[in-house]
Design a protein around this nucleic acid. Structure first.
Lengths: 159, 159
DNA sequence: AGTCAATGACATCCAGGTTGTCCAAGCAAG
DNA sequence: CTTGCTTGGACAACCTGGATGTCATTGACT
């Protein structure tokens, strides 16, 4: 039975959502209730060197204003701090706090557990080939995170 | 090189976005400029039998109010009509218009072309195994479409 | 000094979504 | 026949992650 192109897209979305939704839920269960995927990705980018709002925006393919908003909530929640760059008075110097790193580590652990689960379901070789082929198809273009809304609310049955 | 669980999620998202973004852009190029993925999916559900707002909401895992909003724009754009059920005065009877079906067909064609392209890139057997395994992993749980925002705006470089 | 580019702040708008409240129909049961 | 439950729909207020547009500051380069 050959699947349509649209089905393929749905499959990819379904896989992504399945991973991310359960990861978010699990993160909440472990005590980080207010972390959304977008926060995780943003922290990751900051930890990887995005030191200011504009740069973060660039890495996430998002406007600097949007990045600034995310930074604001991250800071409010205590996951990042924004000292000032001593050399450039006006520029922030973002840093992930220990608490932030805690979230990052926990998130990674959860994702890895989920991956392991998948691996047990279809086999090591299969999962690896899936990843390899997908990587070949997607290339290394940056993933856009302009995903307003759906990454932000908690799940649960809608009315 | 073994990939982390988070990378896997990113890969899936990347694949989905790659398909959907180019499909949307191509749809616009062919004259349907105001169609967003969410509209396509909603029309698909309506064509498949979702005859009223509540039902549509259920199929998309979205509140009936949200479904009603989508229906409103679909109707305004002329893609669906909402006659009244003769037996249940208050209930809508949604129908996809010929124009709507045109969009659906075009969309399908585009998605299939993209799938073909992928098939040429990694091979028929590879793509099929990718789909099979992914389907096994995702199962047949409905995909949630509560994706406010990111499916809606047109692409283009952010400031 | 004078211009230019870039950071970030502020304010306004948008698109999907969520609640919550309310009304109108049907339907079942007393 | 009335009472009450359930379901579809409308309306309103609000949220979130985005986009724009404008502006002041600042550092760099001429």
């Amino acid at each position: 039975m050959s699947r349509s192109g649209a089905d393929l897209a749905l499959l990819l979305l379904g896989g992504f959502r399945s991973l991310v939704d359960t990861a978010t839920a699990e993160l909440a269960r472990r005590g980080y209730e207010d972390v959304r995927p977008v926060h995780d990705f943003a922290m990751r980018a900051i930890a990887a060197g995005a030191g200011n709002a504009s740069e973060l925006g660039r890495r996430l393919s998002v406007s600097k204003q949007a990045a600034a908003k995310t930074i604001a909530v991250l800071q409010e929640r205590g996951y990042v701090t924004r000292g000032t760059d001593p050399r450039h008075a006006r520029r922030m110097r973002l840093q992930v706090t220990p608490l932030g790193f805690e979230v990052l580590r926990t998130g990674e652990a959860i994702f890895d557990e989920l991956r392991d689960q998948w691996e047990r379901q279809i086999g090591t070789a299969q999962l690896e080939s899936l990843e390899t082929h997908l990587a070949a198809l997607v290339g290394d273009q940056p993933v856009r995170f302009d995903t307003a809304g759906w990454m932000s609310r908690d799940l649960g049955e809608p009315v």
